[in-house]
Computed example of a mutant assay.
Amino acid sequence: MHDIGYQRYTGVRLGRRHVVGALYAHSLRTAFGLGRSAKAKIFPWFIVGVVVVAAAGLVAVRAQIGQVLLSYAQFADTMSWLVIFFVAVVAPELVSRDLGSGVLPLYFSRPLRLVDYPLAKFAALATAVFMLLGAPQLVMFLGGAFTTDAGWSGVWDEVTDLAPGLAYAVLWAGVFSAIGLAAASVTGKRAFAAGGIVAVFLMTIPIGGVLSVLPSVTVNQLAGLATPSILVQGTGIWLFRDALVPESGTGLDIGDFGPVYGLVTVVLIAGCIAALIARYRKAARR
C-alpha cells in the first residue's frame, strides 16, 4: 500500500450557518461574474454601467438646471426594464447550472438543510438586484447633497427622499428575484430558463393592457395585478405615493386597492419561494 498523505481534518467545523453564508456569498459573486471568466462579467457589469451613467447624467442635469427630473423611487421605475434582463441572465446562472450538472447531492451532503439552498439563492439574487437599483440612487444622493444650497436641512431632505427610493428598490428586488428563480428552476438549460423568465415578465403585459381598457373602473384599477412590474408599481404607489406620483397627479390609478396590491405582492413572493423549495425537494430525491 502507498501512503498518499491524506490527513484527517482537525480544525473547527463551522456548521450550517457558515455553509449558508458561504453559499450566499458565492451566489452574490456569481451574479456579477466575480471569480469567473471575463465573458461572464460582460453583461452584468454592462447593466451596472448603464444605470450608474444614467444616475450620473441626472445629477449633471440637476446641477445645471436646478431641477430634479426623477425622484429616487421614480428612477427605480425607469430602470425596471433593465432588471428584467438582469434577472433573466443571472437567475439561470444561480440555479439552472446546479440543476443541470447534478451537483445538488454534494451540497446536501454538508450540514445544509434543503430550504437553506433556495433561500440563500433568493437572498443573493435579491441583494444583487437591490444593489443594481440602490447604488445609482446613492450616486444621485451624493450629487444632490453636495449641490444643495439649503445646508444641512437640504441634506436631510435628500435623506428623506432617498429612504422610500431604497425601500422601493427592496420591493423590486423581492418580487423579481422570487419570480426569476422560480421560473429558472423549472429547467437545467440556462438558455431555456432565460427565455422563460423574459416570457413571464413580458407576456403578462398584454394581459394587463387588455384589462386596463375594459369598460369597468374596478377592473381597470385591478389590471396591474396581472403584470409583475405593474404590480410592484401599484404596491409602491400605495406605500410611497408622494415619492412616485408626479405633481400633475397622472400615472397608474389603483384607486383604493392599494392593500390588495400589497397583499398580492406578499403572496406572490411567498408562493414563488414555496415553489422553489418544492422544486429542490423534488430534485434532492433523485
Results as ranks from 00 to 15, higher is better:
3 D>H: 14
3 D>M: 12
4 I>D: 15
6 Y>V: 01
7 Q>F: 06
8 R>P: 00
9 Y>G: 00
11 G>P: 01
12 V>S: 02
17 R>Q: 13
17 R>F: 14
20 V>Y: 12
20 V>R: 15
23 L>F: 11
26 H>W: 15
28 L>V: 13
34 L>P: 02
35 G>P: 03
37 S>C: 04
39 K>P: 04
40 A>D: 15
40 A>G: 10
42 I>G: 04
42 I>W: 11
51 V>S: 05
51 V>G: 06
52 V>T: 09
61 V>Y: 03
64 Q>M: 02
67 Q>I: 01
69 L>T: 03
70 L>N: 11
71 S>R: 06
71 S>D: 08
76 A>G: 10
77 D>A: 09
81 W>N: 12
86 F>A: 10
86 F>H: 04
89 V>H: 13
91 A>P: 07
97 R>F: 13
98 D>Q: 15
99 L>P: 09
103 V>N: 12
110 R>E: 10
110 R>H: 08
111 P>F: 08
113 R>D: 14
113 R>S: 03
114 L>Q: 14
118 P>D: 03
121 K>R: 14
122 F>S: 02
123 A>K: 02
123 A>M: 07
124 A>L: 14
124 A>S: 10
124 A>N: 12
125 L>A: 10
125 L>R: 10
127 T>C: 06
129 V>C: 01
130 F>Q: 06
130 F>K: 00
132 L>R: 11
136 P>F: 13
137 Q>M: 14
141 F>Q: 13
144 G>K: 01
147 T>H: 11
147 T>P: 13
151 G>N: 04
153 S>W: 06
153 S>M: 11
153 S>K: 02
155 V>H: 05
157 D>H: 10
157 D>C: 07
158 E>S: 12
160 T>S: 14
166 L>P: 09
166 L>H: 10
168 Y>H: 04
169 A>Q: 05
173 A>P: 07
174 G>P: 03
177 S>E: 08
178 A>F: 03
179 I>D: 09
180 G>A: 07
183 A>P: 06
183 A>D: 01
184 A>S: 12
191 A>P: 02
191 A>C: 02
193 A>T: 07
196 G>D: 07
196 G>W: 02
203 M>E: 04
211 L>S: 11
213 V>E: 10
214 L>P: 08
216 S>E: 06
217 V>E: 15
219 V>Y: 04
219 V>M: 13
221 Q>W: 04
223 A>Q: 08
225 L>N: 15
227 T>R: 00
228 P>S: 01
229 S>T: 10
232 V>N: 10
233 Q>W: 09
235 T>P: 09
236 G>A: 03
237 I>F: 08
238 W>Q: 00
241 R>Q: 09
242 D>W: 00
247 E>C: 02
249 G>M: 08
249 G>S: 04
250 T>A: 15
252 L>D: 15
255 G>N: 04
264 V>G: 08
265 T>F: 09
273 I>C: 08
275 A>G: 05
275 A>P: 01
276 L>A: 09
276 L>H: 08
277 I>R: 00
277 I>H: 06
278 A>C: 01
282 K>D: 14
282 K>I: 04
